[in-house]
Design a protein around this nucleic acid. Structure first.
Lengths: 150, 150
DNA sequence: TCACATTGGTTGCAACATGCTACCAAGAAA
DNA sequence: TTTCTTGGTAGCATGTTGCAACCAATGTGA
């Protein structure tokens, strides 16, 4: 077995997500996948991660249904790793982390990679947590109901 | 030193965020903080984490400016850990992870904790990634500009 | 077609991080 | 003034990570 489950038994969706992703490397792999990386070597060069670690992470991401392994798009005999719909659904997670990082870990004039709208080349609007009827919510405006039946 | 920096030198804000948070436990500590936990013992019982690990994580979160240690609100001589504004800004990250987990790791009728709007008791609207002019963006509608000067 | 480079790994090992248990000091409670 | 609770620390066994070496299959150039 590659990883022991730690939080998986929780009824908290945050814990299950965290467990499904696995570790930080996995999240950066997903980030790179959003940025267009597909091949083992691309991930490896981009992340600088040891190959055995990358192998293990790719395997768990595939096993978890976040990535899938498909024949290479260039016709070669190698394989590529692409995001499944479930993996693509992680987009807001990555964007949220990116925006938090931009806000708090870069000097105003410090260069950093930027996620932009392809059509207009502009930066994205900051994510907003909204109520069902569209009011913007702060943490204090929300509460966790411990258990429910959906 | 408590943790060695791994991704911190990156110009990618996602990497710096990931590095600042530290590990998954830290993220669950932040989740619990959003849910109202303040005391060492509350975090420890809620998470079931070993106390030395919790000690270390709380320290790095405080050092990183995500939590701060304040005198206990009940007048006792103990201290409490509360989110700083920087920590509160992680709200969209937690919400994004929670929504991803809800969508993909629970059967339709499986019970799970739920984050609701305090005023109306309703579930939140799913997070949306929007362009500057308000169009909803999918991953394919965006691109990463490798470097910029903000 | 034959040598050589690249890709995508696997294996073994040393170093580090994690988790468990026991212990402990300061505060609170009685 | 015992006794319990809180918030830790210390030591140790185990698990995980990272590094380097190795390797088979594939692609490439002469």
């Amino acid at each position: 077995m590659v990883t022991r489950t730690r939080f998986d038994d929780s009824e908290c969706p945050v814990a299950r997500s965290v467990d499904a992703i696995g570790d930080w490397w996995s999240l950066l792999i997903v980030r790179d996948a959003f940025d267009g990386s597909r091949r083992f070597g691309e991930f490896q060069r981009s992340l600088g991660v040891a190959k055995n670690i990358l192998t293990a992470r790719l395997r768990t991401l595939v096993a978890g249904g976040v990535l899938e392994s498909v024949p290479a798009s260039d016709g070669s005999a190698y394989r590529e790793y692409v995001l499944t719909p479930k993996g693509q659904a992680l987009f807001p997670v990555i964007v949220a982390l990116r925006q938090w990082g931009e806000q708090h870990f870069f000097a105003p004039d410090e260069p950093h990679s930027q996620l932009v709208d392809r059509r207009q080349g502009h930066r994205l609007r900051p994510l907003e947590v909204l109520s069902a009827d569209g009011r913007r919510l702060n943490p204090d405006d929300t509460a966790v109901h411990k258990i429910s039946t959906h």
